[in-house]
Amino acid sequence: MKAPARLIAIENVTKRYATSSGPVEALHDVSLAVGEGEFCTLIGPSGCGKSTLLGMLGGLVHPDRGRVLVDGQPVTGPDPRRVATVFQDPGLFPWRTALKNVEFGLELGGMPAERRRSIATELLGPLGLKGFAGKYPRELSGGMKQRVAIGRALAIDTKILLMDEPFGALDEQTRVLMGEWLLDIWRRTRKTVIFVTHSLHEALFLSTRVAVMTARPGRIKSVLDLSMDYPRSMESPELVALRAKLWGEIREESLRAMQ
């Protein structure tokens, strides 16, 4: 099998934030490359800069040093033709219906109303939101809201999907089901996904690669390649061993983060 083309390249990126108690280094000299079609998970203790890194890929955060390339071109700002983002807080527009929220990016892109409506309507089926097109966000459950947000990201049909702890606010059961559902979507659309999570289960269940980040300032501690077939059984000896290994690394960093 030939190595997949490098769709995303993060090169020696550093980021500092000014806070009231002086500058804080969120990321220190981070490099990571992700190939087309990969499901790459960033995992690490709270405050390790995972979200900052994702923000850079989305063009919302600018690195102080280093650069981020998508498709060989430096990221200078949000580029909805290539990158779509799903946030932990779904961030649905409360004055828009589910359907209108899914249409949002297409609307900004200037697509005619009829076409974007038919695209959004077709998406609602696989999102499990058929019959909820006319509902407002306040009428939807947490899991449904996040599926609308994912629909909004899928609607603009980008190569890259950034997901910042998308299921972090959901209860455990919903979370597992949403993971299975996302896996299905990903395997059908073959998008490149960068997925930030705190959950070992999600990382092992979904990813082709897992990048473990260190406590602040965030660095890439190690990268694991997972080649097991989907859907994965969490009880397989391979995954049980990987889980122990991954937990060992994360535990170390989380302990450091707590000090």
Binding site: P78, T85, F87, E107, L108, G109, R152
Partner: peptide
């Protein structure tokens, strides 16, 4: 909600788009 402004920017809204599609309705 500043988060909604971030979302709109991520989906390609410029200052005018943020104003018209997020600020005014909100």
């Amino acid at each position: 909600n500043p988060h909604l402004v971030t979302v709109a920017r991520a989906y390609g809204a410029g200052p005018l788009g943020v104003f018209g599609r997020v600020m005014v309705p909100a």
